[in-house]
């Protein structure tokens, strides 16, 4: 249960430099090979294959990507839609195996990519906590022990035994966030997700994220909005067409990014 970051002295900001990097990407390439026309039936596929008419279009989602993130670092990633930001997160969360290159991820990863994954609307909030948590691999015993905290954090005490079809989208997001962050992960991946519930709750989420960071969690925040990144990230990467266009201090990179937008 204890990790290196746990026993290390707590540093409020900056990286825990003494530990090994939390994320290490070396020369990551991800190549998608997509049929140039969409084939939906097996019959069509077999016919095309036999007649040699099966054509593929290659698309490099990531090309020669290198990245090192230390424990306790808060790194932003900006880029337009389709620049490869989501692919980058998928490679780190091991959903996607890179075509070539090496990924090393040390510790537990919590993806804040899809809040409330696996929620079922006919089940109660409480039942959905167990369900959602099992997708992160947590046993019901572990969940039971921390259930009170999850419910308190989501501020859904009165509604927790109602089917979630009666919940508002804000309530669903609150419950999803509370489950996804019920434990401090070593690596937190965030995709455009700081808009959860009302302003008060957003503050609380940010507080929790920064608390994680101060205890050694490495955080990667991906967004195409400059506003979401500035003010949180120690440094920022700008990805364009699967390659690193620029990297450095958040202010500098965001400045260049905004200018880049103005040009095109």
């Amino acid at each position: 249960m204890t990790t290196a970051a746990d026993t290390a002295p707590e540093i409020s900001t900056g990286a825990h430099r003494d530990a090994a990097p939390a994320i290490e990407l070396t020369g990551i390439n991800v190549r998608f090979s997509m049929p140039s026309e969409r084939i939906v039936s097996f019959k069509e596929y077999v016919l095309k294959r036999i007649s040699g008419k099966l054509e593929h279009r290659e698309l490099w989602a990531l090309r020669g990507m290198d990245l090192v993130v230390q424990p306790g670092e808060f790194v932003g990633v900006v880029g337009r839609n389709g620049a490869g930001k989501s692919t980058l997160l998928k490679v780190i969360s091991r959903v996607l195996t890179p075509t070539s290159g090496r990924v090393v991820v040390r510790g537990q990863v919590a993806p804040l990519l899809e809040l409330g994954a696996g929620f079922h609307f006919d089940l109660t909030g409480r039942e959905n906590v167990y369900l959602n948590a099992s997708l992160f691999g947590y046993s019901s015993r572990v969940v039971q022990r921390h259930l009170a905290d999850v419910i308190a954090f989501s501020e859904l005490e009165e509604f927790i035994d109602l089917p979630i079809r009666n919940y508002s989208s804000g309530m669903l997001a609150r419950l999803g966030f509370a489950v996804a962050t019920m434990f401090r992960p070593d690596i937190l991946l965030i995709d455009e997700l700081l808009a959860v519930g009302d302003v008060g709750f957003q503050e609380k989420c940010l507080e929790r994220i920064h608390d994680f960071r101060s205890r050694g969690t490495a955080i990667l925040l991906v967004s195409h909005q400059v506003g979401a990144i500035s003010g949180h990230c120690d440094r920022t990467l700008w990805i364009e067409r699967g390659t690193l266009k620029s990297a450095g201090s958040t202010d500098e990179v965001l400045q260049r990014y905004s200018e880049g937008f103005a040009e095109s």
Binding site: R106, F183, R184
Partner: peptide
Amino acid sequence: MSIPSTPAPNQPALRQQVYDSSRRP
């Protein structure tokens, strides 16, 4: 408004601690 929450405990260790894409079975 929001109730001050207790800090979340560390994630329970799921066996695999290091994921290395070059060393996958």
